[in-house]
């Protein structure tokens, strides 16, 4: 549906280099990456507000690299929703229809139908400044969808709302996407948004798309340690060798459960790691001596960094355990975790 071919853009803070991307008709594609990586610039280029230095943008096989924004038929939804403050909700939603020459009488029906679908029919005569965050998002979506664009471009539409509302708006977004069947290109820095919403995710780091995969694929098999870390995986270990079901990482033998011999990385959640003064018998296959390097507060818990050989791991412990174990820099402890807690990719 949309194809980006070797897109390049050099800006003062970062460079997008040789970016290739292909979106399928009707899919929900999430471009995931930390802030300042060029996601918004990419949206600006796709929308037509910024010209790429090199490369082509194609839509349904047509080269639109130099088309003006109004000719592309992609509606943008911004983080702050960018509703028109001097117009009513109804006039906001009708804007795109009127711009395409639909007479105001004919647009009324479409506006009402959309408003009903999005549960904002009661707001149609209000001004936008009176709306809550959730209502604003729905109005912005209705406005973007009204002229039936070929694609919706969503620039961090969930970043400005608080956690409780966020989950609800996410749900709404997915429902609306399923309902309309329009192609969505959504950029965000939040892996949770991506996981929940996307049919496919593109992970963008350092001006490049590092991996494109379905959410399941991505979280099961991130392409490298950077992607894994960005997705929230911790204690990422590089596998040096695999022998008879045992991996070596940083000189330490790690037992793990894996089917594929070609794994390159492993990771363990910090809350899965036990620290103890003495070794103990248990079903956990991984237990080895380690030395405390440092610790820091991590909300209601403490994050303790321990090292063993060339391996450094972080474990989460309670304040009580921390005191009982008498943890200090240099303390010798035992580190224990189950082989099933080790994730491999």
């Amino acid at each position: 549906m949309l194809e980006l071919e070797s897109l390049c853009k050099r800006l003062s803070l970062f460079t997008i280099a040789d970016l290739n991307l292909r979106l399928n008709q009707g899919e929900y594609f999430v471009l995931l990456g930390p802030s300042g990586v060029g996601k918004t610039v990419l949206i600006e280029m796709v929308a037509g507000f910024m010209a790429p230095d090199a490369g082509r943008i194609l839509c349904e096989g047509q080269d639109i690299t130099t088309s003006p924004p109004e000719a592309r038929d992609f509606a943008v939804v911004y983080q702050d929703y960018a509703l028109f403050p001097h117009l009513t909700v109804a006039a906001n939603i009708a804007y795109g229809l009127r711009a395409r020459g639909v007479k105001s009488k004919q647009s009324v029906g479409r506006v009402r139908a959309l408003a009903e679908k999005l549960n904002i029919a009661a707001l149609l005569n209000r001004h936008t400044s009176a709306l809550s965050g959730g209502e604003q998002q729905r109005v912005a979506l209705a406005r973007a969808l009204a002229p039936r664009p070929r694609m919706l471009l969503l620039d961090e539409p969930l970043a400005a709302v608080d956690v409780g509302l966020r989950a609800r708006l996410r749900h709404e977004l997915r429902r609306i996407h399923q309902h309309t069947g329009t192609t969505f290109l959504h950029v965000t820095h939040d892996p949770d948004d991506a996981l929940y919403l996307a049919d496919r995710i593109g992970v963008m780091l350092g001006g490049r798309i590092r991996q494109i995969a379905t959410p399941e694929e991505l979280f099961r098999a991130p392409s490298d340690a950077d992607v894994a870390e960005f997705l929230g995986m911790r204690n990422i270990m590089t596998v040096d060798s695999v022998r008879q079901g045992v991996c070596r990482a940083g000189g330490v033998e790690i037992h793990a459960v894996f089917a594929d011999q070609s794994i390159s990385h492993m990771w363990v959640k910090p809350e899965e790691i036990l620290l103890s003064r003495q070794p103990f018998d248990s079903s956990a296959r991984n237990q080895f001596r380690c030395t405390v390097e440092e610790w820091e507060n991590s909300g209601p818990l403490l994050a303790v960094r321990v090292s063993s050989g060339g391996l450094t791991l972080t474990a989460l412990v309670t304040y009580e355990s921390f005191n009982d174990l008498g943890i200090d820099a240099g303390t010798e402890l035992y580190c224990t975790f189950k082989s099933s807690a080790v994730h491999c990719f």
């Binding site: 929308a47 924004p69 592309r72 911004y78 711009a99």
Partner: peptide, 15 residues
Amino acid sequence: VPERLEKAARSLGAS
């Protein structure tokens, strides 16, 4: 006038 409003309008098909 926030420039984003103008951009949003253009993306909706307005010249």
